[in-house]
Simulated assay, not measured.
Amino acid sequence: MLDVSELRREYTQGGLRRKDLPEQPLELFELWLRQACEAKLTDPTAMCVATADASGQPSQRIVLLKHYDEKGFVFYTNLGSRKAQQLAENDKISLLFPWHPLDRQVHIMGRAEKLGKLEVLKYFNSRPKDSQIAAWVSQQSSRISARGLLEAKFLEFKQKFSKGEVPLPSFWGGYRVVVESIEFWQGGAQRLHDRFVYNQADEVSWEIERLAP
């Protein structure tokens, strides 16, 4: 078995200071995301989404961020998926952006709201046609016996929708994560990492606190 206890490195790419923080966390998130894109990180919009069922059992998976603004962070999914079933029982949710090459993480906690049909339709219609067809093919999180079944179903729907637009599946939608707190983590030498958390104080303002690494 691989001994992982000795796998370590130093975090030396810079610090984060209170005087440099904007009053609104979205400004810092946008700066860090832009820098992640400029650094050509693989999938800079990839985020780990953590949900929990009614019993408290957590579950995690990677999805792609598709929109963000002052209202929250948006992703799309099959409404029959495990994450959707868990959010129906417990709307609390956590997001994590793991930008390891930059020694950075962004951790968001909040609650998930289901998007309206018009917003979902607008995004669905912007997707490549093969991605639209794939949404029809997969009953996400359900058990299947072989990959060939998916491939055959994809070809079936590709033929079915070969002419005209692909309609929005009734079982496909999205969520907006309404932010309650957002933490910015910047790696530091000697494991003295810089962590700042923004907690929502009211509708327009945030309280900023430094956390111990």
Rank of each mutant, 00 (worst) to 15 (best):
W185T: 06
Q159L: 14
W172S: 04
F196E: 01
L168K: 10
F196H: 04
P44M: 11
P44L: 09
L118V: 13
F73M: 09
S81E: 07
I62A: 12
F154V: 13
S5M: 09
K66A: 08
R111L: 03
Q139L: 14
P213V: 07
G110N: 00
L16I: 04
A46D: 01
W185E: 02
L79Y: 01
L121D: 13
V63K: 06
G164H: 06
G173D: 06
R210D: 05
Y198S: 01
I208K: 01
K71D: 15
D3R: 02
Y123T: 11
G164V: 08
P101H: 05
Y11G: 10
D91W: 03
D3Y: 00
A112C: 01
Y175K: 07
H67P: 08
F161S: 10
L168G: 11
Q200M: 08
Q186A: 10
F154Q: 13
S181G: 00
Q140S: 00
S142C: 11
E38P: 04
A46Y: 01
W99L: 00
Y11L: 15
C48Y: 04
L87P: 03
E6V: 09
A84R: 05
A152Q: 15
L31C: 12
A50I: 05
E27G: 09
N90A: 00
V177K: 02
K71G: 14
R147S: 06
L16K: 02
V63E: 11
L115M: 05
D194S: 13
G174P: 04
